[in-house]
Computed example of a mutant assay.
Amino acid sequence: MINLDMQDLNRATMKHLIKNIETGMSLSEIRRICEKFMLDNGADSFWYWNIGAFVFAGDETTVSVSGKDYQTSERIIGLNDIITVDLSPQNNNIWGDYARTIIIEDGKVIDKIENIRNSEWKQGLQMEQYLHKLLIENAAPDMTFEELYYFINDVISNHGFLNLDFAGNLGHSIVEDKNDRIYTEKGNKAKLSEVKMFTFEPHISTPNSKYGYKLEDIYYFRKGKLEKL
């Protein structure tokens, strides 16, 4: 068994999936690949409703649903497809939380955004990268979760995108009990530095589009500077 912390395990799981994903696979197969790899390599369970991988594809990528209501579909991956995968492993109550959007064109995973031919998909992933860049450049220890919520949602709107999250938030604190999480949402006056770590996971789309995009990482402050775990 590889000894990985949970976020390293997430990165390894996504690499494993990208190496093994194929046209014709169902979303349930993708979920099984991810969950087996995580359990084989350090996870003892999954912290979010006991689901290790939330998987959506095509026009399902705009769906935002609580884990208690999630059902993995039997949708089949096509030659040209978009897939979102959100991973939730834990070991001894230490969480990992990580999401990526995978693009398949002509049956192959496109590993660099600049090589994506579908301009709509490319723009969506570029926007995700831009939002994470803005987070790192602008988040400060004394900024509140509400201030971050308004700042990022204004950027999303001003660039012609929508926040798809079913609760309207952009992430949450990392804790031992999922019921203790606080969110990047309106009304949360807690400062970012009042939690040890928090996720940033904008789920976005453009108006009237069939497709959604996710990019999630965990962040924390080190000597007053925001860093990615």
Results as ranks from 00 to 15, higher is better:
108 K>F: 09
74 E>T: 13
95 W>Y: 13
103 I>F: 06
211 Y>S: 06
140 A>Y: 12
138 N>A: 12
23 T>S: 02
92 N>T: 04
42 G>L: 02
37 F>L: 08
181 R>T: 11
80 N>V: 03
8 D>F: 09
24 G>P: 00
18 I>G: 01
1 M>E: 08
54 F>Q: 00
37 F>H: 07
115 N>S: 15
182 I>H: 03
123 Q>A: 15
192 L>W: 04
140 A>M: 15
10 N>D: 10
103 I>W: 06
227 E>T: 10
153 N>C: 02
26 S>K: 12
220 Y>P: 01
139 A>Q: 08
148 L>G: 04
184 T>D: 13
7 Q>I: 06
180 D>N: 14
147 E>M: 12
104 I>D: 03
130 Y>W: 04
197 M>P: 05
117 R>A: 15
197 M>G: 09
151 F>S: 10
27 L>W: 11
117 R>N: 15
33 I>L: 13
25 M>A: 01
47 W>H: 03
61 T>W: 05
84 T>K: 12
164 L>N: 06
65 V>P: 06
5 D>R: 07
41 N>W: 09
60 E>S: 05
218 I>W: 05
59 D>A: 03
17 L>W: 00
41 N>L: 01
51 I>C: 02
220 Y>T: 07
5 D>S: 09
43 A>H: 00
181 R>A: 10
111 D>N: 12
212 G>Q: 03
40 D>E: 08
7 Q>S: 08
145 F>M: 10
98 Y>L: 03
196 K>C: 11
41 N>D: 08
137 E>Q: 15
75 R>W: 08
68 K>P: 11
99 A>H: 03
134 L>K: 12
86 D>F: 15
179 N>M: 14
43 A>D: 02
176 E>N: 13
100 R>L: 13
213 Y>N: 11
147 E>Q: 15
119 S>E: 14
223 K>C: 09
26 S>I: 09
19 K>C: 03
136 I>N: 01
150 Y>N: 14
161 F>P: 03
97 D>N: 11
42 G>K: 04
178 K>H: 13
104 I>N: 03
135 L>Q: 02
215 L>C: 09
28 S>T: 14
100 R>G: 10
102 I>E: 00
192 L>I: 04
3 N>K: 13
59 D>V: 01
76 I>Q: 05
3 N>Y: 14
160 G>H: 03
61 T>C: 09
142 D>W: 14
129 Q>S: 11
199 T>H: 01
105 E>W: 00
44 D>T: 11
36 K>N: 13
110 I>F: 05
6 M>P: 09
22 E>A: 06
18 I>A: 06
104 I>M: 08
20 N>D: 02
97 D>L: 07
189 K>Y: 14
60 E>N: 06
198 F>Y: 08
120 E>V: 06
117 R>L: 15
225 K>C: 02
196 K>G: 12
60 E>F: 09
176 E>K: 10
169 N>S: 14
204 I>M: 07
23 T>W: 05
219 Y>P: 03
94 I>G: 07
33 I>P: 07
165 D>Q: 11
175 V>E: 15
92 N>Q: 11
173 S>K: 15
74 E>F: 13
134 L>F: 10
94 I>F: 07
46 F>N: 01
163 N>H: 05
124 G>H: 05
15 K>C: 10
191 K>W: 06
76 I>P: 07
